[in-house]
Amino acid sequence: MRSTSARDRRNRFEDSEALRALLNRLHQAGRGAWRDDPEAAALMRHAADKYAALARKHGLDPWEAASAAFEAMRGAATRRAEDPWAVVTRAVQVTCIGEERGNGLLVSVHQARRPRYSVFHDAERFSDRENPLSDYHPAFHADPFADHEEPEDSPAEPVTTVAAAVEDTIAFFSLLGWEPGTARAAVEYVTARLAEAASRSSAFEGLRRDRQARALLDLPGASWSALLRIVLGTPDPAFAHTNAGRGVLLRLLIGEPLRALLLDDGLVLAAGLAAPGIERR
Rank of each mutant, 00 (worst) to 15 (best):
E188Y: 00
R35D: 14
A47E: 02
R229T: 09
D135E: 15
D210R: 01
R114P: 04
R259F: 10
R116D: 14
L258Q: 09
L106R: 04
E157H: 13
A164S: 14
L19F: 02
P220H: 07
S225T: 15
L60T: 01
R259V: 14
G59N: 05
E39N: 14
G98D: 11
S202K: 03
L23V: 07
A270L: 11
G206E: 03
L273Q: 09
E167M: 05
W34P: 02
V190K: 00
P237G: 04
P144D: 06
A192E: 09
T95S: 13
A244N: 12
E14I: 08
D36F: 15
R129M: 14
R74D: 11
V159G: 08
V159A: 11
S223G: 11
H58D: 08
R20N: 02
R184K: 11
S3K: 06
Y189S: 03
E64F: 07
R251W: 04
A40F: 13
D210Q: 03
D153Q: 15
I278V: 15
L217D: 04
D8C: 14
A171P: 01
P220G: 06
R10V: 07
S201T: 08
G245N: 10
S225N: 13
R209C: 10
S5W: 10
A112V: 03
W224I: 03
D122E: 13
V92L: 05
K50R: 13
H27P: 01
F172G: 00
F13G: 01
G59S: 06
A91R: 06
E152N: 14
P38R: 08
I170K: 01
A81F: 07
G98H: 07
F126S: 06
T242I: 12
A53V: 09
V87W: 03
R125W: 12
D49R: 12
T95D: 11
L43W: 09
T4A: 12
R114F: 10
A18W: 06
A146M: 07
G233I: 02
A76Y: 08
S199G: 05
A222D: 12
P38D: 07
F145I: 08
A275L: 02
L273W: 09
M1F: 12
A29Y: 09
M73W: 10
P155C: 15
V231N: 01
W63S: 04
T242Q: 15
W178E: 00
R129H: 13
L54I: 12
A40E: 07
R281T: 12
P155A: 15
E39M: 10
E256K: 08
